[in-house]
Simulated scan of single mutants.
Amino acid sequence: MTTQCTPDQYTDEQICAWLRGLLTVAYADGHFDPEEQEFIASLTQDELIPNTDLGNLETITPQELAEVFGDDNSLKENFLRTAVMMAIANGVYSKSEADTVHSFQEALGLDLEALKSLEATLWHPEAEKTGETKHPDVLKPVKNWLDGMEVKDPRVARFLCKMIPSQCPFERDITLFGKKIVHIPPMCELNPLYEQMVGLRFRSLSYLADDCKEDVTPYI
């Protein structure tokens, strides 16, 4: 069963707020170096909100995000899914990132068990130094939650196809809005949710090709 391609399901204001939310998550742990902004800015300017200067985007408060998203629970959950992917891009889910994601979740009026289980994987640098780091197998709810993301907006689908690499990337710098957030080794080695990201990319490609009848060659 396929879904009909419905251009502009989300408004420009909602897309802009979505990106500002991701920017806020990127800023959360304080490691927002100059190269990482490019991660989204260079990928979205022409396709998501061409009339908005992404370089001038600012962070957004949870209350502002909630006001723009309104009562669309699907939009809210999809934003939180991408926020989690952004936060754990380097394989580490820090407390500051978790606090930011939690504040968004609370303002959006959602109570997600998947995010509660994800918090059990929080990175504790002190424990890592002493060799006491634990790796509990608690990510199944998060993986199932991410796998449940439906792609219904072609602009978001294009964004995801560009944001998520087509294959396990080599060591590289990740940039967002022209600033470097973090330098990471191959994503497939560190990111426990990499398979979910690849699956989401595939669904996005399929949506664009099958439902929107778009040429997806540029994303392959």
Rank of each mutant, 00 (worst) to 15 (best):
M1I: 08
T3I: 08
C5I: 03
C5F: 08
T11D: 06
C16G: 11
C16W: 08
L23T: 03
T24F: 02
T24R: 02
V25F: 01
A26K: 07
Y27L: 05
D29K: 03
H31W: 05
E35M: 13
E36Q: 09
L43F: 07
T44S: 13
E47K: 08
P50C: 10
T52C: 13
N56C: 14
E67C: 06
D72E: 11
N73G: 06
F79T: 05
A87N: 02
N90P: 02
G91I: 05
V92L: 12
Y93S: 07
A98W: 00
E106L: 10
A107L: 03
E113K: 13
A114G: 01
K116M: 06
L118Q: 05
W123C: 14
H124P: 04
H124G: 07
E126H: 15
K129G: 05
H135S: 14
K140H: 09
P141T: 08
P141C: 10
K143W: 05
M149D: 10
P154F: 00
V156C: 07
A157K: 00
K162V: 02
S166L: 12
P169M: 01
D173M: 07
K179M: 13
I181G: 02
I181A: 08
V182A: 13
H183K: 06
P185W: 08
P186Y: 01
L190D: 10
Y194Q: 13
M197P: 00
G199R: 03
G199C: 00
R201T: 05
L208Q: 07
D211M: 09
C212H: 08
V216D: 11
V216P: 01
P218T: 13
